[in-house]
């Protein structure tokens, strides 16, 4: 029978760290040991930063982004194009688009995509709030920046149907050959979508 090599406090820390994405029990043990060794320089500031985050992080009631203020920094930024809304499935997608400096617009975070297998229906996503925002006078275009998966595109088509009554242009991201992609190695689905949506050169 294995014997415990550390006290319950350390075991608890390891168990919690092992729940983080990318960390298994072994890597959690290494991370815990590293934190313990750097108690003053790393563990203490990390604990304080996490406590501040717990106290201050809120979900933006306008767009669904996470920030320390409500409305969030993106929503109150007047330099952004107020006429364009970019619809994303998750906050990580919003961060990815911001990292790429892809567009200077406002966002709407749905909180996932429709997925019958996982039991996610329209009522579980922030679609009603999006439709209400689309009816705002300043919104002229809605860009559906959703995953190129069947679930992502089902959500895109559903939202397009729901926006039928709003006076906005609905666009979506192009599907096709990624930068650095070689045709020989692409799957047939991507190639077929790329050919169907070819553009003038």
């Amino acid at each position: 029978m294995p014997t415990a090599v550390a006290g319950p406090e350390i075991e608890r820390l390891i168990q919690l760290l092992a729940r983080l994405p990318g960390l298994g029990p072994r890597s959690a043990r290494r991370a815990a040991l590293h934190l313990i060794k750097k108690r003053e320089q790393l563990m203490s500031p990390l604990a304080s930063a996490m406590q501040v985050a717990i106290d201050k992080i809120v979900v933006c009631k306008t767009c669904g982004n996470i920030d320390t203020q409500n409305p969030c920094t993106v929503c109150i930024d007047t330099r952004r194009d107020q006429s364009v809304l970019v619809v994303v499935a998750d906050v990580s997608d919003l961060w990815a688009l911001e990292r790429a400096h892809a567009i200077n617009a406002r966002y709407h975070v749905l909180g996932g995509t429709l997925s019958p297998l996982d039991g996610v229906g329209p009522q579980d996503l922030s679609i009603d709030a999006l439709v209400a925002r689309a009816h705002g006078e300043e919104v002229k275009e809605i860009i559906l920046a959703l995953n190129a998966t069947v679930d992502g595109q089902t959500t895109a088509h559903y939202i397009t149907d729901m926006l039928g009554g709003a006076n906005v242009k609905v666009t979506r991201l192009a599907h096709g050959v990624p930068v650095g992609g070689e045709l020989d190695y692409l799957d047939e689905g991507t190639l077929s979508a790329a050919i169907k949506q070819r553009t003038l050169f």
Partner: peptide, 9 residues
């Protein structure tokens, strides 16, 4: 037969 790419549009 990978059809999904063609169907999802």
């Amino acid at each position: 037969n990978l059809r999904a790419g063609g169907l999802m549009i």
